[in-house]
């Protein structure tokens, strides 16, 4: 071979090997990740309801209002309560979610910090007993619920505490970890439902995008045990080290 050809061949082989290495990293990356078929931000919530029927005489909160523990949400005047008070005044002393005044008015208070997500009554209306007056998303309790269609082999590779990338609608990604894994079958298809927690899920952050109900894309990292895993980690660590 001529020296020019030798040079061409050598350079070509190096380029090809580099290309294959890059492709392999891409490929291994893809092998070790799975994207959710659907995912959204959820929150723990609690409901405030009345045990007795009565008239709503005051409404202090609307949907979206932030509340603190102890804030009064609604006042409901109930003749049943007034009547019961007259016979047994000690009866209502121990309730945590409302206080009762002597004229039979119940003041419902928030039992924890949070945001009002639903209101079930208006001022001037009558509410029967058992009515839910307000639903409140507990502050600091946001999590992500994501659904995946996984093969049994991929299912086996999910680890508690594994990394999950949560991509918000504005295409920024925040990290999260796997909290709980459940499987349910819907229309004959087994869906893996994963609950993801993250300390970066703070209500109202990112211009209000982080809020219960926001659809997101959750990319789950699976345990790597292929023969390329070691090399892959080495390459990624190297890239990270040199600042790429």
């Amino acid at each position: 071979m001529t020296w020019a050809s030798r040079m061409k061949l050598t350079v070509g082989v190096i380029v090809v090997v580099a290309l294959v290495a890059i492709f392999t990293v891409v490929f291994t990356q893809r092998q070790s990740e799975v994207v959710s078929s659907s995912a959204s931000i959820q929150a723990q919530r609690y409901e405030v309801g009345t045990e007795y029927s009565g008239d709503v005489i005051k409404q202090n909160v609307r949907v979206g209002d932030a509340v603190k523990a102890g804030d009064t949400l609604f006042e409901v005047r109930s003749s049943t309560v007034a009547e019961a008070l007259s016979t047994d005044p000690a009866r209502f002393a121990s309730s945590g979610s409302y206080t009762v005044s002597p004229d039979g008015t119940m003041s419902f208070v928030a039992t924890g910090d949070g945001t009002v997500s639903k209101v079930g009554a208006q001022v001037g209306t009558f509410v029967p007993n058992g009515t839910v007056l307000a639903t409140i998303d507990r502050a600091g309790s946001l999590f992500v619920e994501s659904d995946y269609r996984l093969t049994p082999r991929d299912y086996e590779r999910i680890e508690r505490g594994a990394r999950v990338g949560l991509m918000l609608p504005d295409r920024t990604t925040i990290p999260g970890t796997v909290d709980r894994v459940t499987v349910q079958t819907v229309n004959g298809v087994a869906r893996t439902r994963i609950r993801v927690v993250s300390d970066r899920l703070r209500e109202g952050a990112r211009g209000g995008l982080i809020a219960p109900g926001t659809p997101i894309e959750a990319t789950l990292s699976l345990r790597q045990d292929g023969i390329f895993a070691g090399a892959q980690d080495a390459v990624l660590a190297f890239l990270k080290k040199i600042g790429l």
Partner: peptide
């Protein structure tokens, strides 16, 4: 030498051989 004229083929062979390795591994 014939290799002067088949450099693209040699490179393709290297590429496919490495790809086969990855595929078999997968």
């Amino acid at each position: 030498s014939p290799f002067n004229f088949i450099i693209p083929q040699v490179l393709f062979f290297v590429f496919l051989a490495l790809t086969s390795l990855v595929a078999v591994g997968r």
